[in-house]
Design a protein around this nucleic acid. Structure first.
Lengths: 225, 225
DNA sequence: GGCGTAGCTGAAGATCGGCTGAAGACCTGA
DNA sequence: TCAGGTCTTCAGCCGATCTTCAGCTACGCC
């Protein structure tokens, strides 16, 4: 569970980072609207925790822009106090949930978990990892804005890795997901396709999004390599 | 499956104890909030069955405090009647599920089983020990923010130690966990890998997270060394 | 302080796992 | 049926990693 906290109040941001990390979330922090928006667009977060009152660009607009860019990350809005921005308004901009300050940390965690569950079950259409974009719905992949033509197998492998961006995924699992394979299927098949994939999305750009996890399988770098 | 029933109504508590025991659960009972909380924190239960109306400390607060203490035990709330505490409220405090009285025993057992399954499968993905982070899902380890490249064996050893952070773990146990070893396997193998591990995650940082427990094995310092 | 045992570590050879080019099978559309 | 593209299998290669060994160090007990 990767969470981006966008909160300008340093003390609160730090407290959230520590608390959520302790709860098992992977937490990054941004302190203003523009940098929060940039981070959210460049990395594969599950949820963005967004304060409304932010320097540069308020949470409201960060939210709209994120949605406008096609992101379907979970967004939980933190309003400074009840009624200032009403629920409907927050949800209208594309937020998934909202919470009024002051809030209980336990409630926050419960809502985050609930949100993550909901998000997890709604299949992501697009995964953005730095300048690498994997669009599951359109079945296209772009690197640095350029469309990269992939064969069906190559795309399927990439898509599966993208859905678990940042995690190590075993060849066995890829085999099961992409091929309706028996237990006799050959992991080398995966290796061959990964090799082809790298030749298309990494090598020409001097990047390394597809990382080998020796003894396990592969990992798609959350930042695009 | 260990279950703690926290219920002040003696007759119901007894009935639950008998019924659940017959269903194969190991059941303990507490009759008020404070003793329930204490028991839950001191023993490794899979699920806590928590009545809302309790003397001393209501179920609500027992639940919050359990979560605040970092426990991730399964919590099933029993509400005295529909609507008194609504679902959202119960789940907000960190409960995993809830059931309104009067409830069917069969439903209770089904919910308990479902909950236990969910809990069991939510494996800890990340262990944070000071500035040392072991991410089992990504199979990465970072010290002071920097990613430390580890070989598969090294990571497996570290991962196993991290899962029992603060505890002394015998070489025998590591051998069994990391190697699919017979009784003839050589503990020196573990020593060699631990040595390599220290050279990567401790020595360069002047730390000592991996501690030798003479005559026993090793311990990963809970504070990262 | 001395001794014995437990643990540490550098080196080296063996092994393993992963990468890749090539060849042939296969599938699809014309 | 044929052509083009795609997929799988195979085999060789290469580097990373593992294990074993042997000598060394450190600890704890007497």
């Amino acid at each position: 569970m990767r969470v981006l906290v966008v909160e300008d109040e340093r003390r609160l941001a730090l407290a959230l980072q520590h608390g959520l990390t302790a709860e098992g979330f992977r937490v990054d922090v941004a302190h203003d609207g523009p940098s929060g928006l940039a981070r959210a667009m460049d990395h594969a977060y599950d949820v963005v925790l967004l304060d409304i009152m932010l320097p540069g660009l308020n949470g409201y607009r960060v939210c709209s822009r994120l949605r406008a860019s096609g992101s379907d990350v979970g967004i939980l809005i933190l309003t400074a106090k009840d009624g200032e921005w009403d629920e409907a308004e927050a949800l209208d901009t594309g937020a998934d949930d909202y919470l009024s300050k002051p809030f209980s940390f336990v409630v926050l965690v419960a809502r985050l978990r609930a949100l993550a569950r909901r998000i997890g079950s709604r299949a992501p259409r697009r995964t953005v990892l730095g300048d690498l974009v994997v669009d599951s719905a359109a079945r296209t992949c772009t690197r640095a804005g350029a469309t990269v033509p992939l064969t069906p197998r190559e795309f399927a492998v990439l898509d599966h890795l993208a859905r678990r961006a940042g995690e190590a995924v075993s060849k066995r699992e890829i085999l099961d997901a992409v091929w309706d394979s028996g237990p006799d299927s050959d992991p080398n098949t995966v290796e061959v396709h990964v090799s082809a994939l790298r030749r298309k999305i990494d090598t020409p750009y001097g990047r390394s999004a597809v990382q080998t996890v020796r003894g396990t399988g592969y990992r798609l770098a959350a930042d695009g390599g």
